[in-house]
Design a binder for these strands. Structure first.
Length: 519
DNA sequence: GGAGCGGGCGCC
DNA sequence: AAAGGGCGCCCGCTCC
C-alpha cells in the first residue's frame, strides 16, 4: 500500500517530499496501488492539472463521514485531521474545508498520521454489522471522489455560440449588465398592463396583492395555481417566470463564470447529499434545463455517449426487498408496463403506486393504489413501510451498502413529543422511507460509474453525471466500445450490489452529436 | 449593505 | 389535478 495525501511517501527511506510530487505519484501509479489520502477534493485537482490520473483511492474524509453516521455520530467533524485528533484524544478541529489558495491552509497531515487514521477506519469497518458491503460502499464513494474531480477538470462540452443563439432566440439580444432582456421587459410590461398599474413579476408579495385587487384570491404564485386562474396577467406572467429563470440561472452571466474553452466546469461534490447523491457547489450542473441540451455538442470527430438507467429506484426497491412479484416485473425493460395489470391495467396507476410507496404520497389515488400494492407486492410494501415507521419513531435507517441516515434533530424530538407531533413524525417517516431507496440507487449509480471509468479506453472521458445518467465524450470510432462498456458496467454494478438477482437494471446508451438528440 | 430566510422552480 | 423524497440557486424581503 502506498500512502499519499498532501504528504507523499514514495519509497521506504525516502520520507522527504519529492521535488516533483506529481511525477513521483505517476511513477508509483504504474503499480496501480490504492492511494490513501486525506481528501480527494483537495488533493487530486493539482495532480490532474499536472496530467496525472489515478485508478483507485481510499478517501479518508468521505470514509470518516460514512463511519461516523454508521456509528451514530453524525455531524462530528469528518476531516482526516479531525479523525486523527479523535484517535489521539486531542482537541478536534472544527470542520473547515479550506478553499484552494487559502492563505492559512493547515499543514498537511503527516504520512504517519494518514496511516494511523486508515488503520483506525479499517478496524471500525470490521466492527460494523456488514463489513463486506461497507467496504464496497467505501470503494465506490472514493471512486466517486476521483470521478467528481476528473469531471470538474475535464468539463462538459458546451458551445457558447449555441448558448448565445438560444438565449437570444428566447430572450432577445444580450442586454447591458443588470438590465432585463427585451423579451422579459415586454412580458413584465404586459403583466403590469393587465393589472393597470406597475407590478414587479419577481415579487410574490406584489403579485398576490395585485391579484387580490383584481378580485382573484390566491395562496401563492406557484405556476400550477396560476394556471387555474382566469386573468389576462396569467399568460405573460407564466412566460416571464420561465424565461426569467433561464436568464438568471443559465444566462450570459452564468456562462461568463462557468464556461471556458468550450467546456462547462462545475464543481461536483461527491457524497454531498445525505443520501449519497452528488451535489454541486457551483454552476448548477444538476439543474440544467432540458431546453439547454442543444448547447451540449461533441467536438469535431468526437461523439457523446448518453446513457440513463430506466426506472432505477423501483428496481432498487425490488432487489432490496426481495419481492418476487416486483422482481419479476423488474425483469422487464419497462417496469411500469409490466406492473400495469396489477393495478387495473393502467401503466400510470402502476407508476403512481410505486412513486407513492417510495415518496410517501397520500393524495389523489395514492391510498387506493397503495392498498393494491400492499396486496400484490407485500414484501416491497413492507420494506418501505418499515423504513417509514423507523423514521417516525426517530430511529436510523440504512441503505443496502450501509449508508446511515442522519438522526433526527433535538428540535424534532421536542416537536414530536408535543401535541402536534404527528405532522413532524410523518414528515420524517417520508424522509427515511425515501432514504433507503434513494441512497441505494445512488450506490448503484456510483458502482456503475466506478466500473465504467475503468472500462473506458483513452481518451474517452466521463463528462456528466446526474443521479442516474452519464455522458461519455469520446472519439467517434470508440462509440461502440463505450456503449458496450456502459451495459457491461451496469451488469457489473448490479452484480456487485445484489449478486444474483432476477431484477434487471437496463442502461441503454446512444451515441449522439448533441445531447438534445439523446431522447 | 450583508446575512439569512422563504418562495418558487429547474433537475433527478 | 395538485402534492410526496432529495437538492441548488436566484429573487425579494426583513433584520441588523
Amino acid at each position: 500500500m502506498v500512502l499519499a495525501g498532501e504528504t507523499i511517501l514514495p519509497v521506504p527511506g525516502a520520507a522527504r517530499r519529492p521535488a516533483d510530487p506529481a511525477r513521483a505519484v505517476a511513477e508509483l501509479e504504474r503499480e496501480r496501488p490504492r492511494w490513501v489520502w486525506a481528501d480527494a477534493r483537495e488533493d487530486y485537482p493539482p495532480l490532474l492539472s499536472a496530467g496525472v490520473r489515478l485508478s483507485r483511492c481510499h478517501d479518508l474524509a468521505l470514509t470518516e463521514g460514512l463511519l461516523l453516521a454508521a456509528e451514530g455520530r453524525y455531524g462530528e467533524p469528518r476531516s482526516a485531521r479531525a479523525a486523527h485528533a479523535r484517535l489521539r484524544g486531542l482537541p478536534v478541529p472544527d470542520e473547515q474545508p479550506s478553499a484552494p489558495g487559502t492563505l492559512f491552509a493547515p499543514e498537511p497531515l503527516a504520512a504517519e498520521a494518514v496511516a494511523e487514521v486508515l488503520a483506525g477506519q479499517l478496524a471500525r469497518i470490521d466492527a460494523l454489522p456488514d463489513p463486506g458491503r461497507f467496504r464496497l460502499l467505501v470503494a465506490a464513494e472514493s471512486a466517486g471522489a476521483l470521478i467528481a474531480a476528473e469531471m470538474g477538470h475535464d468539463g462538459m462540452p458546451w458551445r457558447r455560440d449555441e448558448h448565445d443563439a438560444l438565449l437570444s432566440e428566447l430572450l432577445g439580444p444580450r442586454p447591458v449588465h443588470g438590465m432585463r432582456p427585451a423579451r422579459l421587459q415586454a412580458l413584465a410590461d404586459e403583466v403590469s398592463a393587465a393589472f393597470g398599474h406597475p407590478v414587479n413579476p419577481d415579487s410574490v408579495r406584489q403579485l398576490v396583492k395585485a391579484f387580490k385587487g383584481a378580485g382573484v384570491a390566491i395562496e401563492s404564485t406557484r405556476s400550477w395555481e396560476l394556471k387555474r386562474i382566469d386573468h389576462p396577467a396569467v399568460a405573460p406572467l407564466l412566460a416571464y417566470k420561465e424565461l426569467a429563470r433561464l436568464h438568471s440561472f443559465h444566462g450570459w452571466t452564468w456562462a461568463d463564470q462557468w464556461v471556458r474553452g468550450g467546456r462547462f466546469r462545475p464543481e461536483y461534490v461527491a457524497g454531498g447529499v445525505v443520501s449519497g447523491r452528488w451535489a454541486t457547489s457551483g454552476g448548477g450542473a444538476l439543474q440544467i434545463p432540458k431546453v439547454m441540451r442543444r448547447v451540449v455538442r461533441a467536438d469535431e470527430g468526437w461523439t457523446l455517449v448518453v446513457a440513463d438507467a430506466a426506472q432505477l429506484e423501483p428496481r432498487v426497491l425490488a432487489a432490496m426487498a426481495g419481492d418476487v412479484g416486483l422482481a419479476r416485473a423488474a425483469g422487464e425493460i419497462d417496469l411500469y408496463s409490466a406492473l400495469a395489470q396489477s393495478f387495473g391495467g393502467e401503466r400510470d396507476n402502476a407508476k403512481i403506486a410505486m412513486l407513492s410507496a417510495m415518496y410517501g404520497g397520500t393524495s389523489g389515488d395514492a391510498p387506493k393504489l397503495l392498498a393494491m400494492m400492499r396486496q400484490r407486492f407485500p414484501q416491497a410494501y413492507r420494506f418501505v413501510e418499515d423504513a417509514a415507521k423507523a423514521g417516525e419513531e426517530g430511529r436510523l435507517v440504512r441503505s443496502w451498502l450501509g449508508r446511515t441516515s442522519p438522526p433526527p434533530s433535538e428540535r424534532w424530538k421536542e416537536i414530536v413529543s408535543g401535541p402536534d407531533g404527528g405532522r413532524a413524525a410523518r414528515d420524517r417517516g417520508r424522509f427515511t422511507r425515501n432514504f433507503v431507496v434513494q441512497a441505494t440507487a445512488a450506490e448503484w449509480a456510483l458502482a456503475l460509474m466506478a466500473v465504467l471509468r475503468g472500462l473506458l479506453p483513452d481518451p474517452a472521458r466521463l463528462v456528466f453525471f446526474q443521479h442516474d445518467e452519464v455522458i461519455v465524450h469520446c472519439p467517434l470510432d470508440q462509440a461502440e466500445q463505450v456503449i458496450g462498456a456502459v451495459s457491461g458496467a451496469a451488469a457489473e454494478a448490479t452484480r456487485l450490489l445484489f449478486g444474483r438477482t432476477p431484477v434487471r437494471f437496463p442502461m441503454e446508451a446512444v451515441a449522439v452529436d448533441c445531447y438534445a438528440d439523446a431522447k
